[in-house]
Every structure is written in structure tokens, then in C-alpha cells.
């Protein structure tokens, strides 16, 4: 099965890409999916570029975790800050199982093919787990950023040192 043609790979990644893009509202779907401007459409272009790499990696039965991570991370990074729940954000990865089977319907009829499918499914499961890690690290990052930002405003410290005063709670009189 290492002889999957480039053409087929393209089709697989194109379908996978469509699955992701279909998780967005109709109006943005067309924008994310079709606009090829690297800078005007970073979401679509990043996903497209990396899903191609990911397709290539997932089909190699001997999974190279570093390569997978490189391709997976930019996609998850984007989806982690969009309005998805974690399951919604990562569900697209599982879809590859179906995509691949639809593209290769006869594979399950031979013993060799079944073995390949099994291995592929295992790959996908592993990728999902990796995605989960990445997703969590992204979320973690966001929280860190939020905390840092809050910390940066060291107002509490200043207030403690009596360097700063706040607007009093009953400020109505002051206005007059």
C-alpha cells in the first residue's frame, strides 16, 4: 500500500480539507475554502497546507510523530481558539477513516487490505491523542496568557503599596 498515487493522496487530503471547512458556517465556508490569498485567508491556507502534509504522514504506517506534530499543530492551534468544543474541534480527524474507506472500497476484501486498514485506524487514533495534547497545551497557553496579562497589571501590588487609588465605590458625590 505504499504505492498510493499522488493523485489519490490529493483527493484524500482535498476531502479531508472539505470535512474541516464544512464545520464552519456556509458563508465562511466558501471564504475559507476558496480564497487562496495567503494573508487574507490564513485559516484556510494553514489548514490546507498542513492537511496535505498530514495526509502524507498518516498513510505511512510507520508514524513519524515529529512530522505529524509539525503538521497537526498549526491546525489545532487555530481550532483551539475558534468557537468549538474540544470534541467538535478534533472530530475531523476521525473522519479520515471514512474518507479513506470510501476512496478504497475494495480494500476490506483482502487480508492484506484489512491489515492495512487496521494499521491506519491505529494511526488515526494516535493522531487524535496527539491532537488532544496539542489542544490542551494551546488552551493552557491561552490561560497562561490571560493570567500573565492580569499579572502585568500589577495594580493590586501598587494598591497595597499605597501607590495608587481606585475610584471610590460611591463615586456619585464626587462628580458634583
Amino acid at each position: 500500500m505504499d504505492t498510493i498515487s499522488t493523485e489519490k493522496k490529493q483527493r484524500l487530503s482535498q476531502n479531508w480539507f472539505s470535512v474541516i471547512i464544512n464545520t464552519y458556517p456556509t458563508e465562511s465556508k466558501a471564504f475559507f475554502g476558496k480564497n487562496k490569498d495567503l494573508f487574507a485567508n490564513p485559516v484556510g491556507n494553514t489548514i490546507k497546507r498542513n492537511i496535505e502534509r498530514l495526509t502524507h504522514e498518516v498513510l505511512l504506517l510507520d508514524l513519524n510523530r515529529d512530522h505529524v506534530k509539525e503538521a497537526l499543530e498549526p491546525i489545532i492551534r487555530i481550532r483551539a481558539v475558534q468557537e468549538f468544543s474540544i470534541s467538535d474541534a478534533l472530530a475531523f480527524i476521525f473522519a479520515f477513516k471514512t474518507i479513506f474507506r470510501k476512496e478504497n472500497p475494495s480494500l476490506s476484501q483482502t487480508e492484506e487490505g484489512r491489515l492495512y486498514l487496521e494499521a491506519l485506524d491505529a494511526n488515526i487514533d494516535e493522531i487524535v491523542l496527539m491532537a488532544l495534547d496539542i489542544y490542551m497545551s494551546c488552551k493552557h497557553k491561552i490561560y497562561t496568557l490571560r493570567i500573565n496579562e492580569a499579572k502585568k497589571h500589577v495594580r493590586q501590588l501598587l494598591i497595597k503599596k499605597n501607590l495608587m487609588c481606585e475610584v471610590p465605590e460611591t463615586g456619585v458625590e464626587i462628580i458634583r
Binding site: 476531502n15 470535512v19 464545520t23 473522519a95 471514512t98
Partner: peptide
Amino acid sequence: FPKPKEMF
């Protein structure tokens, strides 16, 4: 949100 099968 559609689940993988529906998505496909």
C-alpha cells in the same frame, strides 16, 4: 455540530 460520519 455534525459528528464525523455526518460531516463526511
